[in-house]
Write a protein that binds this DNA or RNA. Sequence first.
DNA 1: GGTTTGACCCGTT
DNA 2: CAACGGGCCAAAC
Length: 109
Amino acid sequence: MDFAQSVYRLVAQIPRGRVATYGQLAMLSGRPRGARQVGFLLARAPDMLKLPCHRVVHTDGSFAPEGLFSYPGGQRALLEQEEVRFTPGGRVDMRVHIWRPQPDILSKR
DNA sequence: GGTTTGACCCGTT
DNA sequence: CAACGGGCCAAAC
């Protein structure tokens, strides 16, 4: 399967209130060192896919650069709406919200 | 076809 | 937690 397709499909499945990391998505898509490519793919993802891109963060729970999300308050505000909890340092509490998909996530369909 | 550029990641300080 | 250095890889120039 195509790398981009795999990434897009995975992002589409991240549930509300949970987050995935770029590296994690790269790993699940069979390209362990392709984290930067995941970022690239999200940047140019077709709008019609309506992907929950705000649920993708850095491994340390920090966000994408300011200004990427047109939404007022940015990525953080979008996550707050899903009742995501943050650390005192202002990052996503990964211990709680990291997404753990079932192993067969890619084999379906 | 070499160089620069990123929605990255990791270890060290 | 922040700052730095080094590694990473495909696109864009």
